[in-house]
Computed example of a mutant assay.
Amino acid sequence: MSNSSSPSTSTRVKICGLTRVVDVQAAIEAGADAVGFVFYPPSPRAVTAAHVATLISYVPPFVQAVGLFVNVGAHELQDILSHVSLDLLQFHGDETPEQCQQLGALTGKRWIKALQMKPDMNIQTEIKNYKDAGASGVLLDAWHPDLHGGTGHAFDWKRFPKPEDFDAPFALILAGGLTPENVAEAIEQTHAYAVDVSGGVEASKGIKDKQAIEKFVAQAKRPSQHAERWRH
């Protein structure tokens, strides 16, 4: 269903892979809507629950704290959530719709699912499956055979679904290879509800660049000529 009659709204921005207080503060000061923390030990941006508890203490109301998980077990997830208060869970592994639904019900948390844009994937069907399971949104990322996100590469934005591909609005998030230089163009092409960036605003893995964050958020939120948006 088209949202062409809906008023334009600013694209939401999530800065992910945060490991330092100064970077959390930079993201918030720049106007990010969400900050993300990676609970996946193999990642160079991985953090512990104890560390994130400190980082979240710098997150004000109305900015969401998002936890990124890859094939996490129920007990491990519950243990992490007993130490840190997250607003949203982001499942970035091979979790099925049923597994995501179960983890969401177990923890009482809203969740989104990241999908890698594999060449042979029926993206509309995959999105519908997770939507029907209770996802608050779906994040579309570049595909890599060995990495669960953080590839630094973009996929063909022409593959990004359009509102008319679905019978009701649903929040789709764009990720993969986004930078301050290309995010405005990416939004113009996809009309994404939100964008998610990590490596594109880093000085090195896990270490953010304050000026890059500021430029990225400003470019993502600049007025768009398109009024049509994905909305809840």
Rank of each mutant, 00 (worst) to 15 (best):
M1D: 05
S2Q: 09
T11V: 15
I15L: 11
L18D: 05
L18W: 10
V21G: 07
D23T: 11
V24M: 12
A26H: 08
A26E: 07
E29G: 09
E29S: 15
A30Q: 10
D33H: 15
P41T: 10
P44H: 03
R45E: 07
V47E: 09
V47N: 08
L55V: 14
I56W: 05
Y58Q: 13
F62N: 14
V66N: 05
V70G: 02
V72T: 13
V72F: 02
A74F: 01
H75G: 02
Q78R: 12
L81W: 01
S85R: 15
S85V: 04
D87V: 02
D87C: 00
F91G: 00
F91E: 04
E95R: 12
P97F: 02
Q99M: 14
L103N: 07
L103R: 09
G104N: 10
A105T: 08
G108P: 09
R110G: 12
A114Q: 09
L115W: 01
M117A: 13
M117E: 04
D120Q: 14
N122K: 11
N122Y: 11
I123L: 15
E126M: 12
K128G: 03
G134L: 11
G137Q: 03
W143T: 00
P145V: 05
L147A: 06
G149M: 01
G152Y: 00
H153C: 05
H153E: 06
H153D: 01
A154H: 05
K158N: 14
F160L: 05
K162T: 00
P163C: 02
D165I: 01
L172T: 07
I173C: 11
I173F: 15
G176H: 01
G177H: 01
T179E: 02
P180W: 12
E185N: 14
T190Q: 00
H191D: 10
A194E: 03
V195T: 08
V195S: 05
D196E: 08
D196N: 09
V201A: 02
E202I: 03
I207S: 06
I207Y: 07
K208R: 10
K210A: 14
F216I: 07
A218G: 06
K221Y: 11
Q225D: 13
A227G: 13
